[in-house]
Design a protein around this nucleic acid. Structure first.
Length: 490
RNA sequence: GAGCCGCUAGCUCAGGAGGUAGAGCAUCGCCCUUUUAAGGCGAGGGCCCUGGGUUCGAAUCCCAGGCGGCUCACCA
């Protein structure tokens, strides 16, 4: 009945044919001694004659992604990881029994082959199969060979098909892994200890964001998925671990967009005895290293912009950025000037003015920060966990890094004065009571930890998904997350 | 959450002055032992996202809903 099952029915029929040949369509083991990529690298340049003389045997496995049949022979294109190699299946060579297996093959099936390397008449590097082992049957057809899979919804929902059909997507996630690997190596080289802190927290802290709530049955209590690991990592600094980092998921119960997924990956690291200016240098070094490792260059294109990571990067105080960029871009410079004047007069403590300036910054300044820029000296009002500037306690020793008009990192000298931290928490609690669901809750244990003494410390968070977007030239965060959040089908 | 756009065969897409649906690839049958978008001949395949409405008649027009994309709002 269901015509969606038409091709599926055909494949089930072939599956039964395999069984009748004594072949298990879902096998267990195949000794792989070669990888397609290796074979191509080692022997792919050899001439027809060289290959013939060498008589190289190989044993590979993979998925059939294309199948060109003749009467008594066939060419199968085998996908092995990121690489593809052609296999020649000939009745005379394989024998009657194995060739009957060939007849039951479909695109999508997994097979193992051992054979000899050669070149065809058309000079294609090919494995001439001597043995064929059927490994696993695919009951569903793969997307079409030229256009592949383009439907965005299917690509996200059925990422497994996307990965099969679109090699470029595969490549993005290889790059993602390399970026994270490179970060980890860099940090470990610099003497950091990798740690893991709670994802389930009874008091969600470390960022201004709405948390997800979950429930622990045995404890009979609600828990929150963390919005940031910050407060736990600082407890470790108190505990005497001078350099720690964590690469893990954060969860924020907020809107979804091309740059927001409810769960996202964050690198946070903390350095005792350092301040935020040290971290600017450190960040430049880290990104230079990443770019070199992943792209082999420190300039690259992102969505039509040419990004140049050459050091040093611009450093621009927050207020100055608003004044400079705001005056160029703002449709109403007079209003902005009066806003800035009011703010200065109000002793920089007026929460409403700060909020207005913050809005101006986000709307007008952010999109203009294309080349890597450190925006420094954020108002204390906006930075409840950051150390105050000695010269101006209304501002903090903090920076955010912007690249391609987007916030990539946030860092500051950590507030280690437990009494000041208590006051800041209390201010947050007041905002929470006034209805701000994103304001921090007061974490008594964190304050207790600070009272044991935290050395001067600088800490930073880097949104890894956004870094991956940058280095892989992707416009949407969904294209750098394997399984982005979607509503359920139906 | 709001606006705009999309949803038709397994995949990629046509069709949309209203008359119950087409192509290519894939599938199935026959031929074919060096192809690579293999080829030749033939065939089958559709809850046209869902539910209402208008109409003699709806894939097509109207309303509501679902899912997705983009933009905006909020955030990293």
């Amino acid at each position: 009945m269901d015509e969606a099952n038409d091709q599926r029915q055909q494949r089930i029929k072939k599956l039964e044919e395999l069984r009748s040949l004594g072949v298990n369509p879902f096998g267990t083991h195949f000794e792989v001694t070669d990888r397609a990529g290796q074979l191509i690298q080692l022997h792919g340049k050899k001439t027809k004659e060289e290959l013939e003389r060498a008589g190289l045997r190989c044993r590979i496995a993979g998925r059939i992604v294309a199948l060109r049949r003749f009467g008594k022979a066939a060419f199968a294109l085998l996908q092995d990881g990121a690489d593809r190699v052609q296999v020649y299946l000939k009745k005379d060579t394989l024998g009657e029994h194995a060739y009957r297996i060939c007849v039951a093959l479909d695109v999508g099936d997994w097979i193992g082959v051992s054979g000899l390397l050669f070149r065809t008449k058309t000079d294609e590097f090919t494995v001439d199969a001597r043995e064929l082992t059927f490994l696993s049957k695919a009951l569903r057809p793969l997307p079409e060979k030229w256009h592949g899979l383009t439907d965005v919804e299917t690509r996200y929902r059925q990422r497994y098909v996307d990965l099969i059909a679109n090699p470029a997507i595969h490549e993005i996630f290889v790059t993602r892994s390399r970026i994270i690997g490179s970060m980890r190596t860099f940090l470990i080289e610099k003497g950091f200890l990798e740690v893991e802190t709670p994802m389930m927290q009874s008091i969600p802290g470390g960022a201004t964001a709405r948390p997800f709530v979950t429930h622990h049955n045995a404890l009979g209590m609600d828990l929150y998925l963390r919005v940031a690991p910050e407060l736990y990592l600082k407890r470790l600094i108190v505990g005497g671990l001078p350099r720690v980092f964590e690469i893990n998921r954060n969860f924020r119960n907020e809107g979804i967009s091309t740059i927001h997924n409810p769960e996202f990956t964050m690198l946070e690291f903390y350095v005792a005895y350092a301040d935020y200016t040290d971290l600017m240098t450190f960040t430049e070094e880290l990104f230079t290293r990443l770019a070199q490792d992943v792209l082999g260059a420190t300039t690259f294109a992102y969505q039509g912009m040419q990004i140049n990571l050459t050091r040093p990067w611009r450093r621009l105080p927050w207020l100055q950025a608003i004044r400079e960029v705001g005056m160029q871009e703002n449709a109403n410079p007079t209003a902005l000037l009066s806003l800035l004047a009011q703010y200065t007069k109000a002793g920089k403590k007026d929460a409403k003015l700060v909020a207005e300036l913050d809005e101006t910054f986000q709307k007008i300044v952010e999109p203009k920060l294309i080349q890597p820029t450190f925006i420094t000296d954020y108002p204390t009002e906006l930075s409840p966990l950051a150390r105050r500037k000695d010269a101006d306690p209304s501002l903090t020793d903090r920076f955010e890094l912007y690249v391609a008009g987007r916030e990539i990192a946030n860092a500051f000298s950590e507030l280690n004065d437990p009494l000041d931290q208590r006051q800041r928490f209390e201010a947050q609690v007041a905002r929470r009571q006034a209805g701000d669901e994103e304001a921090h809750a007061l974490d008594e244990d964190f304050l207790r930890a600070l009272e044991y003494g935290m050395p001067p410390t600088a800490g930073e968070g880097i949104g890894i998904d956004r870094v991956v977007m940058l280095f892989t030239n992707q416009a949407s965060i969904r294209d750098v997350i394997l399984f982005p959040q979607l509503r359920p089908e139906k």
